[in-house]
Design a protein around this nucleic acid. Structure first.
Lengths: 229, 229
DNA sequence: AACAATAACTGATAAATGTCATATTTTTAA
DNA sequence: TTAAAAATATGACATTTATCAGTTATTGTT
């Protein structure tokens, strides 16, 4: 038997915590838990979503394909985050693809459960609104970063972001391992450029690597680089 | 005597339309109408907002100062849009400055009126949520554009955007005249680069200019440029 | 109308970044 | 375990974009 939303700790981190006991029961009855392997899609750009995904475990990249065939990663969503809200709320096709960058466990919640609560429970709606306001602020920050910072600064920032949001493993490597291509797609640059800068960082003792894994060696210097010294 | 929100046509374009008659009366009683001259601030980055601004007339740029001293314009807000919602909702200081790029008339609505309705009227909250979802989608698009398109493409796109959103005057110039610096800040490039490309567009017959005013001459070619031909 | 102040423009050059070609390493799967 | 595939890495070069310096045009003010 599957676990119930009412007891799910993940809920504490997202807007579902503003649901009443009854609403939560209804969500729990209608939800479906799925396992998504690294590299698999949750959904693709342009799809019509019939619900949202609540992330129990693992990480998904939200990305958009540009005209020149390159992906831009707009956000990395992890444990406790709800994916697909925007598209369900505005009843539009998704503008982003969601692909697992590590093995994931997600709960699919049909949109009916969400929409119903959105119309009846202002606390829930307000909570969702607050989350979206936060996402919007972050998106604005990304815009400013991409247009005003150098690739080097953005890569340094990405590593610090990865450390702060996903932590490090026992050996001191970033817990979330992204391919060089994914890194370049987060930062918005050519893969070769990203690789070159990673090599440079390694040479200068800012980071160390082992295969595709990256560990931060000199956080202070990385921070200074982001700030523009 | 001032005009009442209940009769304001602007309201049809924004989330205020989801308010009940009583709520709207309350908003109308507490609102203050202000005139803001071109170049003046509505508010500055980092300020704490005590309410939102409903734009009756004119245009405001929402921008963020980057570490290297350049502004990045994240959005142009015009008639019918509500500015400052995000910050009021998440009860944070603003992350953006709002400066009038043309003479404006705005209504300042104290946050109490907004917050009260947000907690009581799920329709209103949902409406605000939909608007924010839309803004978030647009922000994602901007991210992809900035990181994947060339400056030339982005400037072409900006001109088309200005035409579609603000129209043209009788003489065939874009109705919203931005300084070259503002254009470069929308696009995320150096002012000189923007000017250079504007000259090139003029030379190639894509646009014509008169002082700082810009008129679109060959929309089809601009569009093709945006698409990457 | 004349002046100062500001904005628009242009050229020369430097710096950053992208592209293509190819070598090397790591990962995957037979 | 080993071959094939995929990812990472590096060099050479082209292109794009930024920067600095200086000129011309426009705008606003007395």
């Amino acid at each position: 038997m599957e676990s119930r939303c009412e007891n799910c700790i993940i809920r504490q981190f997202n807007s579902l915590r503003a649901m009443s006991k009854e609403e939560l029961q209804q969500v729990s009855d209608s939800k479906v838990t799925k396992k998504v392997k690294k590299g698999e899609h949750l959904f693709e750009e342009g799809e019509k979503l019939n619900g949202v995904y609540c992330v129990r475990n693992g990480v998904s990249k939200l990305s958009k394909l540009s005209a020149n065939g390159k992906d831009q990663i707009v956000k990395l969503a992890t444990k406790g985050e709800v994916i697909g809200q925007r598209s369900v709320i505005s009843e539009e096709h998704t503008n982003l693809s969601a692909i697992a960058v590590s093995d994931m466990e997600v709960c699919f919640i049909p949109k009916e459960s969400i929409n119903h609560t959105l119309q009846k429970n202002p606390n829930f709606t307000l909570e969702v609104l607050r989350h979206m306001a936060h996402d919007l602020k972050e998106a604005d920050d990304v815009i400013v970063n991409i247009s005003q910072k150098t690739v080097k600064q953005r890569i340094a920032e990405a590593f610090l972001y990865l450390k702060n949001n996903f932590g490090e493993d026992e050996e001191g490597f970033l817990a979330l391992t992204l391919s060089r291509e994914d890194i370049s797609n987060v930062v918005g640059t050519a893969t070769e450029s990203a690789i070159r800068i990673i090599s440079e960082f390694k040479k200068n003792g800012l980071i160390h690597t082992s295969g595709k894994r990256i560990g931060i060696k000199n956080e202070r210097k990385l921070l200074e680089m982001v700030e523009g010294f």
